[in-house]
Design a protein around this nucleic acid. Structure first.
Lengths: 195, 195
DNA sequence: TGTCTCATGTAATCCGTTACATGATTGG
DNA sequence: CCAATCATGTAACGGATTACATGAGACA
């Protein structure tokens, strides 16, 4: 049973909060889990169809607009899936890839990337504050609240780590002129020219 | 030409450090970029073939065991690729997905996950210290060193952020008994009283 | 009436891993 | 000589996104 495409987990999980149409599932995943998860229609609709065929979800009518809801078997299955070991995801960080080869990219461009990422992390941090309030305000979140706040906190810690790192890195690069590699990486052929 | 599969960037980058066989490229990516990048043979060999056809890399002989090296055009191309905007990667964090639905997983299991991830992050931190020394010791790394250390630092900040978060989270969950769901989050027999 | 949002679906395609097949070289 | 490592490749598969086709209802 390791055929677990985590999409199933995410969809069952979403429906465990409240019954929803497929469209709403997608919106919920984007809006609520957005900072650590994503699903596209191309995944969600076929998954819902399979789940319905397996009796893990159902709906009052097969009409468009009818909400899917979790069956007792679906809840059971969700618990199984959640209990499976976390599968390690492949790390692929385009930013670090660029910085690693920063000698070829040029110090100036690296500074630009770091400045961008620091700004983005600060914006995220502000966003988390808003989400936090939203969760605190909702009454219906009852038993879920501590867990939801946990994931927000993870985002906040990550963002703060990124900000600290970026500032440290910028300070470290501050002194450097565009170095030996300069014969090429510098203003002569500026970033704008390349496509 | 935005068909840029970042694999090309990674392979050209690897060869910019020193000429290598395809096999060695894969090892280098795993060992050196391992904490933020990965490539499989199924990507590397076809990519090398395409790069060679395009004149971006070449080798003394087409024999197995002959190292590929970057051509001047290849270096040029690497710089173009590095200058392209970082493409945002889809967030997919299986750990946070599980914690978000922690009410169904059970508090105890959540604590287990958090304890695991804290341990893993501590191990990573130790690993980074070793890498740091390795980079400092190598003489040939010269102009690359500050950039390489940047990526190590990123890993360290992330790991520390994870540790802080996990400890905070564990403290937050400390008081909680396995709640209403407790009679159920274990083996069997869901009474399904949940609404 | 026309446009926007809600809603469902699917076909094409991309990106990437896994698993396998094959062979040379080396050293115990 | 045998096993391990170095080395090259590819076929099969899978997961996911994108883009498109379609249509209902709301409202301006």
């Amino acid at each position: 049973m390791s055929r677990t495409s985590q999409t199933e987990t995410a969809v069952l999980g979403a429906l465990s909060v409240m019954p929803m149409t497929g469209y709403a599932v997608r919106e919920a995943i984007r809006d609520v889990l957005g900072h650590f998860w994503s699903e596209s229609y191309g995944q969600i609709y076929p998954t819902l169809a399979r789940l319905a065929a397996a009796g893990l979800v159902d709906r009052d009518a097969p009409d468009a607009g009818a909400a899917y809801r979790l069956t007792p078997e679906g809840l059971e299955r969700l618990r199984e899936l959640l209990a499976e070991p976390v599968q390690p995801s492949v790390p692929r960080n385009g930013l670090l890839l660029r910085l690693f080869f920063g000698r070829h990219l040029g110090v100036e461009a690296c500074r630009g990337l770091l400045a961008d990422v620091r700004l983005a992390a600060e914006a995220q941090l502000a966003g988390y504050a808003a989400i936090r309030e939203g969760i605190a305000a909702e009454e219906r979140t009852e038993g879920d609240r501590p867990f939801w706040l946990l994931t927000v906190s993870a985002g906040e810690h990550a963002a703060r780590g990124t900000i600290d790192w970026a500032e440290e890195a910028l300070a470290g690069l501050a002194g450097m002129d565009d170095p030996a590699a300069s014969q090429e990486a510098s203003p002569a052929a500026p970033a704008g020219a390349a496509r």
